[in-house]
């Protein structure tokens, strides 16, 4: 080899920089667990951790969809509204025409995907910022909720109540709900798609550099539309899980969930400019958010609004962290990456 060595031997010795944000989040999660365990009686039990999953299964599913969108360099503000719409659709279809549960589930998933597909198509073909398009989608979905009804609709369907009441015992008195299993499956499938399929890699490429992706001959149109469809599907599924959790449909459900989902993804180490982020990070991000709430509930004297202050603080730290030690990028964000 001549003197023009192209290798960077020192990078092999250090911890790969791309995993730093995820590792920081993981460290934070562990630190919170330990701190909570020391401070509160009964905190360090397995069930407390499991409850974080039980209470946040729907957020996890929604955040998975959001991960696809954000990694692809977009943003989806409609997810909370789509979750609410899904609870409304399932509650009303189960109540009034009394459709069978499987059909309702299929319809809800189809509706969410369709909405996402539409938004993705508008974003790609008409080159309108994702921020605005999904904002319109958010208005649309919330509006549709109110068209269905302004009151909360209870769910009495046998299948739904059965799922809601089911507990999967893990032994030693610990249990999880079926929703957690569903969320886990979603995470695994999504992880597989992101890591092991061409679609997944195209998502990273499009988010990293849209123009280059186009020149490298990747299906940019299909990928852009696919991520919003996936996000729509995940939101609809999240809505179903929420229906199991709440056993009702309500148009004001999941207000602000898009922020929680975005925060979880960012705290999980994804760049909002796209092209970087791991599903593991998103899972950790959701867990950190969930554990924050658990700690606050254990604290008792601390009010719930500390959650959002704490999340804001975390967001700030993570964004500044990314800005200064974050991944070096060759070029600026692709047009699709910026809503501003």
């Amino acid at each position: 080899m001549t003197e023009t060595t192209a290798t960077l031997p020192e990078t092999r010795l250090t911890f790969p920089r791309k995993y730093v944000p995820v590792a920081v989040t993981a460290g934070l999660f562990v630190a919170m667990l330990v701190a909570g365990g020391i401070r509160y009686e009964g905190f360090a039990s397995g069930q407390v951790v499991l409850n974080v999953f039980v209470d946040n299964a729907f957020l996890l599913v929604v955040a998975v969809g959001m991960t696809f969108v954000i990694v692809a360099g977009g943003i989806d503000l409609s997810v909370g509204a789509v979750v609410a719409l899904s609870t409304m659709i399932s509650a009303s279809l189960l109540a009034d025409p009394g459709l069978p549960a499987p059909l309702v589930i299929a319809l809800v998933l189809a509706a969410g995907s369709l909405l996402g597909l539409g938004m993705g198509a508008v974003i790609h073909y008409f080159e309108i910022q994702p921020f605005i398009v999904t904002l319109a989608g958010m208005f649309l979905a919330r509006g549709l909720c109110y068209v269905i009804g302004t009151e909360s609709i209870p769910i009495t369907d046998g299948t739904f109540t059965a799922v809601a009441d089911a507990r999967i015992e893990l032994g030693a008195g610990m249990w999880i709900s079926p929703s957690v299993v569903i969320a886990a499956v979603v995470v695994l499938v999504a992880g597989y798609v992101l890591h092991y399929t061409r679609l997944g890699r195209a998502v990273y490429a499009v988010g990293g550099d849209r123009q280059s992706a186009l020149l490298m001959g990747l299906p940019v149109a299909r990928t852009t539309i696919a991520v919003y469809t996936i996000s729509g599907l995940c939101s609809a599924l999240g809505g179903l899980l929420m229906s199991f959790y709440m056993l009702s449909g309500y148009g004001l459900n999941a207000v602000g969930m898009e922020l929680d989902a975005i925060a979880a993804v960012v705290i999980g180490g994804a760049l909002l400019t796209g092209g970087s982020g791991y599903l593991v990070g998103t899972v950790l991000g959701v867990l950190v958010l969930g554990l924050t709430q658990t700690i606050l509930s254990f604290e008792g004297t601390l009010s719930p609004w500390w959650t959002s202050i704490f999340i804001g603080l975390l967001l700030f730290v993570f964004i500044v962290l990314q800005r200064f030690i974050g991944v070096r990028r060759t070029r600026g964000g692709a047009p699709v990456a910026t809503a501003a």
Partner: peptide
């Protein structure tokens, strides 16, 4: 191959070579 490298800096070297035909 253009003067501006039209690849994705966020992906690995191997992926940049193979993406789209992995």
């Amino acid at each position: 191959v253009y003067q501006e490298v039209n690849l994705c800096g966020n992906l690995s070297v191997a992926e940049n070579i193979y993406i789209g035909r992995e």
